[in-house]
Design a binder for these strands. Sequence first.
RNA 1: GCGCCUGUAGCUCAAUUGGAUAGAGCAUUUGCCUACGAAGCAAAGGGUUAGAGGUUCGAAUCCCCUCAGGCGCACCA
Length: 558
Amino acid sequence: MLSQLKIKLESFLNKIAKDSFGNEISLPQIELELPADFIYGDFSSNVALKSAKIMKKPPLVIAEGLASLFSSEIKKSELSEYIEKIEVKAPGFINFYLSAKAAGQTIEMLFQEEENYGKSNFGKKEKIQIEFVSANPTGPLSVAHARQAAVGDALANILKYIGFDVTKEYYVNDEGNQIVLLGESIKTRAIEILGGQANLPENGYQGEYIKDMAQIFISENKITKLEDIPSIKHEKWMQFGVKYLMDVIRKELDDFRVHFDVWSYQSKKATLKSIAGMVEGLRAKGFVYEHEGAVWFKSTQFGDDKDRVLRKSDGAYTYLTPDIVYHKDKFDRGFSRVFNIWGPDHHGYIPRIKAAAQALGHDHNSIEVLIVQLATLYKNGEVLSMSTRKGQYVSMREVMEEVGVDAARFFFLMRHIKAHLDFDLELAKKETAENPVFYIQYAYARINSINSKAEIASFKSKQTDFCLLKEEEELVLIKKIGFFTDILISCYQQLDPYPLVSYLLDLATSFHRFYDRYKVIDEGNKELSAERLALANATKVTLGIGLRLLGLSTPERM
RNA sequence: GCGCCUGUAGCUCAAUUGGAUAGAGCAUUUGCCUACGAAGCAAAGGGUUAGAGGUUCGAAUCCCCUCAGGCGCACCA
């Protein structure tokens, strides 16, 4: 409601400014912002400061002039009942103050929309894809994947909510050297189990899970002696490994409440035929050349540091080549933009994949790569090892089981994605105020508890007017609820769910403050109680929607 | 050596993308339960925004340099 009012007011002011000055001076576009403190009003414009130079007058003088112009025009318009007053403050801000009616209508609208509060068609059904996690099926998921999963899922939920047509996708690299190594690693362990001698290949997978897999392979295939091994084809080991580990990964993500719409397999997307087609397509456009027996992609033409090899001199394709085919496939499926969520170790790869998109005829911004920084796990003040060598990394499963899904997901979202994250396992497990996820859920549960009490005392919440809510804590709460839509849009603009996390913490704080200072259910004042009860429930609705968008539960009781 | 990211209170991080007195949590000190859930609230101290220069009405934010840390620089995936 307040978000819409802000947009309305902005265009109204711009029209007035244009009508009054349009021919003489081009004023900068008026954009309203939310002041840091409510003493500066509810909306604020810096247009006077910005235009001081063009108008050759001191900002305060301009601001006074504009303020009185705006004031008289607003009085004549339908906006008059929503704007209470306009003030000018040094060094030249024009501040707008909302009326009680604007606040009241905010809550009324929320109850009309209820569980759809804040939903919008901002995204205009634009078809976008978010590809995330996409870990190679060579082992269980790590903490790094867990953070990417939490981020990708939350972001997809938010974008969907504000009107984008979002597809969540996982790309399975089920071909290539790493899969060959996987197969050989399993085979090696199988030989050992059968009493034979074998060495893991260089860069083979050393984790304990490979031994478990070897054991399962042996019993599934009814292998009884060492002599059976040589007759088993390479492909069989590889296919078994991929299938087994994909089942593990799928289950882990499922338990983490992350569900993908589409699972794409490299082996299906990047066939020899589709690869040849893609390379020929680029060649026809002049982006491909031969050099020292290899086939190269002229990525420097699109800003990359150096050209990249598509096909090595030994005839094998590099990792990049099927990946280009996959991205071509994304665009062929009609996505106008694709978001890829990667770890920081892949950032060097961004220029070449963007170059590929451009070579394929798409815009530079058609691929957006979100780099999610790593999380360092702490336990009792000690850093847990993150080494991926020798399979000694902390797994997503361990974190999930140690602290629970809610706390894990919340902690992974608790910082901007570009910020390195310190994850304190002990803190995440605590069920106290220090733990921010409980702080938010506590506010939610508290409101529920008020509702039970209200029911017993047969208090009804009143969902119109709200003219009795005048205390600062009440108005602050109402206004924060009113700007929920704006927050979701900043998540889109920043491509980061973080603004919503920070908003929910803030909203919970405002509620606890309100709760602590005023009694919601007051026998002596039933009218006021009815409005406060409604305000509390408006908070509950907003908190609930926010928590669910982040993939967190909304406990009625704790 | 080159590129990307980061540097803000003792610690972990914010700061509406260039706005008003740089804010929270933890830790420290101190108040508030006969009370709708104290898993809560209120208050205090703590800052040359790594350092130097520049751009302008206005800089933590933009530009240049220096310093420190992380990551990446394959005919690997």
